[in-house]
């Protein structure tokens, strides 16, 4: 559990970080909380000759909630998300999800930027960001751009981010209506066996809009347009939930691991999603 030798860089600003990325190309990686990257380096599964620590880049921190828009700097920790009162009002699902990530010690170090940028299918935030229809802000030598969370993930650890870009912030519209983040895991600190993010709104007893995403059931997060559509216009009764689950099961592609075989994961995915929808509806 000892990493190969690497150069440690600690730029003072974003320009410095991008300059290092430009210089070293895919020999360099930026590090936020380090809770994904450092273990990979120690296992020698990730070789990072140049490690760029972002902790002095203060411009990447901060959480703002203004005019119905939420913007979270990449270096905001999970603990900061949990403790931010304005954020809890604007998007309570984020707090509910963050509280289910790992344990308090990890949440003091782990950041939202690291969580979404690493492309680990086990991470909770990518699916949630797709549910929220968030945008990721990227900055590189060519300037800044935004990529939709729903377009960001290509495969496990493969994303739209270029090697010389830094993911600087996530932003999304404040939510209204019902929400739920439901996660089954083997123990504290584990990745999800299945996790579901559900946002929906209610008008006149019927579901007016719905967004449904799941985590760790494919090599990328799964936002299922059909699973949301199956709820819209219904009273979110048993039949509608069943239809939504059926749609989601058509979109996920879990693999067997120590959590269990595919049949188990598909069954649990349905149960967890059904519970998330019911809970979100009860809050709508």
């Amino acid at each position: 559990m000892i990493p190969a030798a690497f150069e440690y860089h600690r730029p003072a600003d974003l320009a410095g970080a991008i300059a290092l990325l430009t210089e070293h190309g895919d020999d360099a990686r930026v590090m936020a909380g380090g809770h994904s990257l450092i273990p990979m380096m120690k296992l020698r599964m990730a070789e990072v000759p140049h490690l760029i620590d972002l902790q002095d880049v203060t411009s990447l921190g901060g959480i703002s909630v203004q005019g119905g828009q939420v913007r979270i700097g990449a270096m905001a920790t999970q603990a900061e998300l949990i403790d931010h009162a304005g954020l809890s009002n604007a998007a309570p699902i984020l707090r509910e999800a963050a509280l289910q990530i790992a344990d308090p010690q990890v949440r003091y170090m782990g950041t939202i930027g690291g969580n979404v940028a690493n492309g680990d299918p086990g991470n909770d935030m990518p699916g949630l960001m797709q549910c929220l229809d968030a945008s990721f802000e990227l900055e590189g030598p060519g300037g800044a751009r935004a990529v939709k969370a729903r377009d960001f993930y290509e495969a496990a650890y493969m994303t739209e981010r270029e090697d010389d870009e830094v993911l600087t912030a996530v932003s999304f519209a404040a939510t209204s209506g019902g929400y739920a983040y439901e996660k089954q895991k083997r123990k504290i600190g584990d990745y999800a066996t299945a996790a579901a993010a559900v946002l929906l709104t209610k008008e006149g007893g019927a579901c007016a809009s719905a967004s449904v995403a799941m985590t760790n059931l494919s090599d990328v997060p799964v936002w299922s347009e059909a699973a949301g559509a199956a709820l819209v216009g219904t009273a979110v009764d048993a039949a509608a939930i069943k239809a939504s689950v059926a749609a989601m099961l058509g979109d996920i592609d879990p693999t067997e691991d120590n959590r269990g075989p595919v049949a188990f994961k598909r069954h649990v995915a349905g149960v967890i999603l059904g519970r998330a929808i019911a809970r979100a509806w009860s809050r709508a």
Binding site: Q184, R186, R259, G260, P261, A263, F264, H267
Partner: peptide
């Protein structure tokens, strides 16, 4: 008796 093995008991007994 982890989650999937308990689930398997229920599944094989036809409880799903």
């Amino acid at each position: 008796h982890d989650h999937w093995r308990i689930w398997k008991i229920a599944n094989e007994l036809g409880l799903h």
